[in-house]
Amino acid sequence: MEILGMGFVAFFMLLGSFLGRLLGQFIGTGGDVGGVGLAMLFMVLTVNYLENRGFNFKTRTENGIRFLSALYIPIIVAMAARLNVVGAIRGGTVAILAGGVTTIGAMFLVPLLSKLNK
């Protein structure tokens, strides 16, 4: 059943969200700090653990998860459509510089780190 896949993801999101909120209280920011990352981490560990033990998801369960993954870009598009872009235009310079400098800088780190493998 597809809903099982959706519920599987929901379980990890709730787990991550709870731990993230705990962390948020601990740091003192409130909110859900790192919950998404924790949820992803636990899900990767669980899926890989299950697969190593020879457990495979049924195709229909898997379809539920894949359906959610396929919606990720469209939902980011919807998110973009509700942000305060008018206000952000004033901060356009910082966006271009922050995105641009990190990208070009990171590219020049490629040869340095590639050498580590030799």
Binding site: V36, A39, E62, I65, I75, A80
Partner: peptide, 18 residues
């Protein structure tokens, strides 16, 4: 649709293929 709830839900689901 573009709120943080569905955004986080779909992002987490992408970890399945990792």
């Amino acid at each position: 649709l573009g709120g943080s709830m569905l955004r986080d839900y779909t992002i987490i689901s992408t970890a399945y293929g990792v």
